[in-house]
């Protein structure tokens, strides 16, 4: 186990650093370039949004940043580790200890109850009292009374709250969110993003969010745009980091 404290070597250390990242997919007789020459640096506890249209490559970028996949070219450093060069199992270990996820489609295990879903990362991490911690988190997200419900018995918004509780369960230092409100109506989406931002601030987690929702993106400290696999950081949006949106 790599101790988290070892990794916080001074304030200048980037939580995520991407160097010249490219990703291509082989389609047999053709090659599809999804990402091209991406460079990016995200500081500890920073919240960052990556905004782009469908098919722009933003989800692929998120997957590579989180170490779910490895790039065709380039290097990804996560909390000091070159995760793009680690084996699948080493990356898994890293994710277990430092990374949390929130997905557009929630990704709860249908056979498990809300409580069991939240307990899952705690059990995997060898937490001593996973049930107590999971209960506490579910109360935090307002589902203290729904512990034994399975995902089917919960609304979309409730499912996403369970997913957020799960994401924060193992005290990640970086949280990746893929269109967290993409499957929810405006009102519920607003509530979920509030919850996500609040928890994120309280825990001091680094947040990397992919979205096509400019308003949600505006709640992050920095925004990047991605189009046809090329990442840019528009100057016009940089002011947003000075005045957090409530």
């Amino acid at each position: 186990m790599i101790e988290k404290t070892n990794l916080a070597q001074g304030a200048t250390t980037a939580m995520l650093r991407v160097e010249n990242l490219s990703h291509r997919v082989d389609l047999g007789n053709d090659t599809l370039t999804i990402l091209q020459g991406v460079n990016l640096e995200i500081k500890r506890s920073e919240s960052v949004a990556i905004v782009g249209r469908s098919g722009s490559g933003k989800t692929t970028l998120l997957g590579l940043l989180a170490g779910l996949d490895t790039p065709t070219e380039g290097v990804v450093h996560l909390d000091g580790a070159r995760i793009s060069e680690l084996s699948e199992d080493k990356r898994a270990q890293l994710r277990a200890q430092r990374v949390g996820f929130v997905f557009q489609s929630f990704q709860l295990l249908p056979a498990l109850t809300a409580l069991e879903n939240v307990m899952l990362p705690l059990e995997l991490g060898g937490h001593k009292e996973p049930a107590a911690r999971a209960r506490e988190l579910l109360s935090r997200v307002g589902l203290g009374e729904r512990l034994t419900h399975t995902p089917r018995q919960l609304s979309g918004g409730e499912q996403q709250r369970v997913a957020i509780a799960r994401a924060f369960a193992a005290d990640p230092i970086v949280l990746f969110a893929d269109e967290p409100t993409g499957n929810l109506d405006n009102h519920t989406g607003q509530a979920i993003s509030d919850l996500l931002m609040t928890l994120n601030r309280e825990q001091g987690t680094t947040l990397v969010m992919v979205t096509h929702d400019e308003l949600l993106a505006a709640r992050c400290e920095r925004q990047f745009h991605i189009e046809a696999g090329v990442l840019t950081e528009p100057a016009s949006l940089q002011r947003a980091q000075e005045e957090p949106v409530q």
């Binding site: 199992d89 898994a92 270990q93 890293l94 277990a96 295990l109």
Partner: peptide, 15 residues
């Protein structure tokens, strides 16, 4: 398959 993908995301190794 979805469960396995999720477990891997949560850090469970292939083995």
């Amino acid at each position: 398959r979805d469960t396995v993908a999720l477990l891997k995301t949560l850090g469970v190794s292939s083995r």
